[in-house]
Nucleic acid binder design. Structure first.
Ligand SMILES: [Zn+2]
Ligand SMILES: [Zn+2]
Ligand SMILES: [Zn+2]
Ligand SMILES: [Zn+2]
Ligand SMILES: [Zn+2]
Ligand SMILES: [Zn+2]
Length: 728
DNA sequence: GAGTTTGAAACT
DNA sequence: CAGTTTCAAACTC
């Protein structure tokens, strides 16, 4: 401790100048080990400090975001899960250019991505999407997917993917995994943050595939997506439903419930105001960017680049106070933090710190929100399943009545549970223990939305939305179940996921955990530094979605049972962290707890693939219609984005809740959320041993309450309204 | 943008 | 495990 403090102190001093010199306590170890590269190169330094912004940002994502938003809305209906997984993968740089890029780039996979990818890249076909779904539903689909995926992969990224996996692996200490075949090649700093949720059962293949697909996506997906989206969704939806069911079965074997539900539909991707949004990343990568990008950049709040960024002044971004760190991602240039050590350059430090924290609290990085999936009920596409997401630890609000974002439950769009110790709880998503009927809640939410005005905005989209909804759902299911998703965020340089070796033990039973993904990603402009994370498109795998999504929820489902293999992490690369081993064991036990950790990822050693249980990515797709972009300003704030990822828990506890089926509201409502602001890159992290992601306040994704329609999504605008509303 | 409020994280 | 301090976000103005 002392040391750490001392370090910190030093760091602080240094901060301004040279971050590099000082390292946090952790450094200590590093030093011992030798590694330390304390001073990391000067070259970056300048950049590091934050000063650089990319000139332009790629926020363009807007479009994509928008898209997503739409989707989200839809999703809301269906799924609460929004963002599913965001995984970020870094690529390895086998290619030279990439190297640096690694750090930067992270890809995110989201449901969207898939779709997107497929759509955009591969083909616009719906089919693809379906396929992607991996779901059991139809083999056909899969096949088709495969084909598509394959193509994609072949075309470009396949290799990359592989590489990534390796690289990632190397990066992280294998910890438990003996497996990692690859040794580390990479040295320093590349970090990836993954946010992904894995489902246990899922098929590894799928995952891989997905990833590839993602790669494909690149470019103009957005547009395509959009157009496609609807259709896709439809398809998806349909598929999804069945698929989901199937999936679930397959995954869980027995358990039916698992499907994911849409729990969280995330309504909004944005969770926090700040972060949200923007992603720009995608755009960048893609290159083209969409038009949107330019938008503003930096206004203060969001960074131009990225969307989210932290503003840590005293923690060097090495404590959970830092959203970036808590989310397992590296700070991006857009972060306004001072003396930040949460950068790839200090990877060692970061890792160590994480380990220390984990040692203190194994669940420190675990996803906060978990869902029980029990019901899956609805067969209809429309209905979503109710999701019962809740915070694992519960909130302890005393004065906000759980009506403001101060409340983590509220921020995640989940109702308070028995675990909450809040006083005077009035959480619109459900009061503690009161399990209100969903209907009520829904109404509340709706009310809220209306007030916010979200609905209107969304309405436009509504037409599409409906489709989206389905689509989203579909995504969820697809994604969720099997695929692991990985996101890479590309932040510029910064954003990367940090991996930790941590292991995450997912709850034994299948849980859904929501991970906080960072929705926002930060993008860094490539210009300044390097960039490379992605070389342009080729490398990136997933970005597409990313863009859009800024915030996504990530949901992961974990199966308890599934053998680790089953669950591979999607992100092969990304997940270095996880330890495969653990999962199972724990699984059995924990039922009781929800396990925070939700997702686990595993790598497959040889293959480089990860398998994760199942992971979903929920992100909503980014399709964004341009239209709403302008609104973006607020985006930042949006309240909602849900950043949380949700994991299912199997836990019994929940069960009770779960058991209650929710009366669900149907998703009918058109409201959707408006678009969320684009998130720039998302960085997610998995890492943490435990769960995965954790979200602090900020990053949490929302879970959607059972009903879909209502989602609280929030738009940026909305946020305002929310405030009002919320305000007391 | 400054200043206040808030509740989690960190610390004791 | 509780009580206190620290922290950065959420919120207010
Ligand atoms: Zn920070
Ligand atoms: Zn940061
Ligand atoms: Zn930082
Ligand atoms: Zn609360
Ligand atoms: Zn609560
Ligand atoms: Zn409450």
């Amino acid at each position: 401790m002392d040391m750490s403090q001392a370090l910190s102190e030093h760091a602080e001093q240094d901060q301004g100048h040279s971050m590099f010199e000082i390292k946090p306590a952790q450094v200590e170890k590093e030093q011992s080990s030798n590694k330390q590269s304390p001073i990391k190169c000067p070259k970056d330094e300048s950049g590091m400090t934050m000063g650089h912004f990319p000139e332009k940002k790629q926020c363009d994502v807007l479009e994509s975001q928008v898209v997503r938003a739409q989707e989200d809305y839809n999703e809301n209906v269906g799924a609460s899960l929004q963002g599913a997984l965001d995984n970020i993968v870094q690529r390895e740089p086998e290619a030279s250019h990439l190297q640096r890029g690694l750090s930067r780039r992270c890809l995110q996979f989201g449901e969207t991505r898939w779709k997107t990818v497929v759509n955009s890249t591969c083909s616009p076909n719906l089919m693809n999407n379906v396929t992607s779904s991996r779901s059991p539903a139809s083999a056909m689909e899969l096949e088709s997917l495969d084909g598509s995926l394959v193509d994609l992969s072949d075309s470009s990224s396949k290799k990359q993917t592989v590489n990534l996996s390796r690289s990632a692996t190397s990066m992280f200490p294998p910890r438990g995994n003996e497996k990692l075949p690859i040794t580390v090649s990479k040295p320093s700093g590349i970090g990836l943050h993954l946010n992904s949720i894995v489902n246990t059962s899922a098929v590894g293949h799928t995952t891989a595939t997905n990833i590839e697909s993602s790669n494909c996506s690149e470019s103009s997906n957005l547009v395509e997506k959009i157009a496609i989206t609807p259709k896709d969704r439809m398809l998806e939806t349909k598929a999804s439903l069945p698929a989901s069911a199937a999936t679930a079965d397959s995954l869980h074997n027995a358990e039916p419930s698992n499907m994911l539900q849409p729990v969280g539909h995330q309504t909004t991707p944005l969770n926090k105001r700040k972060f949200n949004p923007e992603h720009g990343y995608n755009v960048e990568e893609f290159g083209q960017v969409s038009p949107a990008k330019k938008k503003r950049k930096k206004s203060s709040s969001l960074d131009g680049d990225g969307c989210k960024r932290c503003n840590c002044k005293r923690t060097k971004c090495l404590k959970l106070y830092c959203d970036c760190f808590a989310a397992g991602i590296y700070c991006a240039e857009s972060c306004a933090c001072q003396g930040c050590f949460n950068r790839p350059e200090y990877e060692d430090t970061v890792i160590e710190t994480r380990q220390q924290i984990e040692s203190r609290n194994p669940n420190a990085f675990a996803p906060k929100i978990v869902q029980h999936v029990a019901e899956f009920a609805a067969e209809d596409g429309n209905q979503l399943m109710p999701s019962l997401a809740r915070h694992k630890r519960g909130c302890h609000c005393k004065r906000s009545m759980c009506l403001k974002k101060y409340c983590e439950c509220y921020q995640a769009n989940v109702g308070c549970s028995s675990d909450c110790r809040c006083e005077g709880c009035k959480n619109v998503y459900g009061r503690k223990e009161e399990y209100g009927s969903t209907g009520e809640i829904a109404s509340n939410i709706v009310r809220k939305q209306i007030l916010d005005g979200r609905i209107d905005d969304k309405l436009e989209m509504a037409a599409t939305n409906s489709d989206f909804l389905h689509a989203e759902l579909y995504d969820l299911r697809h994604l969720t179940p099997s695929t692991p998703s990985i996101q890479h965020s590309d932040h510029g340089k910064d954003a990367q996921v940090q991996f930790n070796s941590s292991r995450y033990v997912p709850s034994p039973e299948s849980d859904f955990s929501i991970l906080p993904s960072y929705a926002k990603s930060i993008s860094s402009p490539s210009n300044s530094h390097s960039n490379n994370m992605i070389p342009e498109k080729g490398e990136e795998i997933l970005d597409i979605d990313t863009c859009g999504q800024g915030m996504d929820y990530n949901v992961a489902m974990m199966d308890q049972f599934s053998p680790r293999h089953d669950a591979l992490v999607d992100i092969c690369e990304l997940t270095p962290l996880q330890n495969p081993s653990m999962t199972q064991t724990t699984s059995a036990s924990s039922k009781t707890r929800d396990w925070t950790g939700g997702s686990r990822l595993q790598l497959c050693p040889g293959s480089g693939c990860f398998s994760s249980g199942r992971s979903f990515r929920w992100r909503s797709s980014p399709i964004t219609p341009l239209t709403r972009l302008h609104e973006s300003k607020n985006q930042g704030h949006d309240t909602d984005s849900g950043l949380y990822d949700i994991l299912e828990d199997d836990t019994p506890e929940i069960l009770k809740e779960a058991s209650t089926p929710i009366t669900s509201v149907k998703a009918s409502s058109p409201n959707k959320k408006r678009v969320s602001p684009p998130h720039k890159h998302i960085q997610g992290l998995w890492s943490s041993s435990s769960g995965g992601l954790r979200s602090g306040r900020k990053f949490i994704l929302k879970a959607v309450p059972s009903f879909p329609p209502l989602t609280p999504c929030i738009d940026s605008k909305d946020s305002r309204t929310e405030k009002k509303d919320s305000n007391k």
